[in-house]
Design a protein around this nucleic acid. Structure first.
Lengths: 125, 125
DNA sequence: CCTGCTACCTAGATATTCTATATACATGTT
DNA sequence: AACATGTATATAGAATATCTAGGTAGCAGG
């Protein structure tokens, strides 16, 4: 289902980022921006609710820690279930993406987006 | 933004399916199921509103045609703008997917534990 | 103090998908 | 004739995720 694409994306990315080590919200947002060269960013309105959902599902466990300067930080640590969920969601993500990419590639012979020379791809269905 | 992932998926797939030739709703649903081996399916509540949105945006143009048997069918034909939009959305889709896949792969040296062989989703663009 | 930066949080708007239902034509069966 | 089945389009309402836009607060420097 297409809903799955929407449902998981933020959670999947967060779980993945937290797999290496516990991080706090702001740090996660910065990490995502760095890793995707600015293509993807967490808005606060996406980030914090998503973290709370993961917590409610028991996939992460938060703990407070003081900052050397500024307000204290809420770190999130992956739970065992979170690690399992990460593996499943990664798998699921790849399945969906492959299905869509497969459909797109089948759709017209060319892969390149700009080379639609007009040759209609008649294909037997 | 992550919203983009949700926003376009159905529309992108529909535009792509219609690139080859005009089709009607039921046909599109069947075509998607076939192409993705049942992984993705359009539900009516997704399909028809999505087609109406594409029509409202001027990306497809519908026309009625009688069926040899059963109720008449509403075929949709890609417009010039629709063809352009398809190229853009395809490009956009690949950008987002690559960004996410890049983030996931960077996340931890290993791919998923069950190691999905080499199924790399990304493709050279 | 006041500005700026860090850091967390939430309410409400927006958009998309799914669930469930309705309508209607055509065909085959009882 | 009546009925179920398969085809075909459509929409209302629920569920959900993201974004917009704001609020609160600590710390440091001018």
């Amino acid at each position: 289902m297409l809903r799955e694409l929407r449902k998981g994306t933020a959670g999947l990315l967060l779980l993945d980022l937290l797999a290496a080590q516990p991080m706090y919200g702001f740090e996660l947002a910065e990490a995502l921006r760095e890793r995707t060269n600015g293509v993807l960013t967490f808005k606060e309105g996406t980030l914090y609710p998503a973290l709370h959902r993961l917590e409610a599902e028991g996939l992460v466990k938060p703990f407070w820690q003081d900052s050397p300067r500024g307000p204290r930080r809420r770190y999130y640590r992956l739970t065992a279930r979170g690690r399992k969920a990460l593996a499943e969601r990664r798998e699921h993500w790849h399945t969906l993406v492959e299905a869509i990419n497969g459909a797109l590639d089948t759709g017209n012979g060319t892969l390149s987006p700009q080379s639609r020379g007009g040759t209609t791809v008649s294909e037997a269905r």
